[in-house]
Design a protein around this nucleic acid. Structure first.
Lengths: 160, 160
DNA sequence: GATTGACCTCAATATAACTTGAGGTTTTAA
DNA sequence: TTAAAACCTCAAGTTATATTGAGGTCAATC
């Protein structure tokens, strides 16, 4: 009788265990699976089983969300992980590096916005055409998960 | 026959004009009105008419959204404006000051997050218990419009 | 071997912030 | 004066990110 390789080499985590360990609900794990963010296989009774690294994936998903990255973007970035082997530290580091750049951009945008609000406090100009907050050359467009940034049309309010 | 004071002292803007000038759709103006963010009165034919300062309000709403503030929060802050008179520059400046504080907080959080991701790039630890990104003492909870920040339960992934 | 807890699927609900459309009225302008 | 453009209301649809619940199965324990 052959030894169960799966049991020897990988964890065999139930959905309830993963939920408890990761702090997300079972329904969220189902949801993430339909979104292609995590994977599972089924046991004889059609119940989900997970490898241990699903915990790492979930953690990464949550960290990325904290940076304002959407699940779709996260999915795309996760897709760059190797399929054949369990990701290494280097693989994960590459991911966080990608997101760090986005985070830097976001912070820079917020700071520009902050500085502009700053100058507006001084002049009370928040609705005047000279208000620097409405510089149309400095916007990021709409982010799905983050803020809705100004578009140049709003600027038109101040042209008169 | 009495002079129409309204026509003399206030603009009498149609919804289409306001939409064009502010860059938001007519349906959005209706929506903002149901949300209590802007106001209008009706003419004889039941059509909306606006005072000029509605343009400023819309601009402020959009600016606040760009800072990641929800419409509900914006409504609350707008409610601090004087009801009886048209708001002055000082009134608007007070608003932007309130939001600037929130923006500062948000930026500070993002920077802490950035620094943590930074240190994780070095060690590749994004899923290890020592990863500083999962310091439960540093989270903001879930923001409605902005990022979903880490909660302490996610941390539990790394306790083993 | 039966109860209980964990699990399954699928559909509906929730929230924020809007948009779209249907069906009907008012205003404007040629 | 009549056709087009603009307006009205109210209901339903949209996207992202889940949560909840109904109805039924599987697994672990007394």
């Amino acid at each position: 009788m052959p030894i169960d390789q799966k049991k020897l080499t990988e964890a065999n985590l139930t959905v309830g265990y993963v939920a408890k360990r990761s702090g997300v609900k079972v329904s969220t794990l189902h949801f993430y699976e339909t979104k292609g963010l995590i994977r599972s296989w089924r046991n004889g009774g059609n119940q989900r089983r997970y490898k241990k690294d699903v915990l790492r994936r979930i953690a990464v998903v949550k960290a990325a969300q904290a940076m304002g990255i959407t699940l779709d973007e996260i999915k795309q970035t996760l897709a760059t992980l190797p399929e054949q082997r369990t990701p290494t530290q280097k693989d994960w580091a590459a991911l966080s590096k990608q997101w760090q750049a986005q985070l830097d951009e976001r912070i820079a945008y917020m700071q520009r916005l902050r500085d502009k609000v700053d100058s507006c406090i001084g002049c009370g100009c928040l609705s005047l055409k000279s208000c620097p907050i409405y510089n149309k050359d400095d916007h990021l467009g709409k982010t799905q998960n983050g803020a809705v940034f100004l578009n140049s049309k709003v600027e038109s309010i101040f042209q008169e």
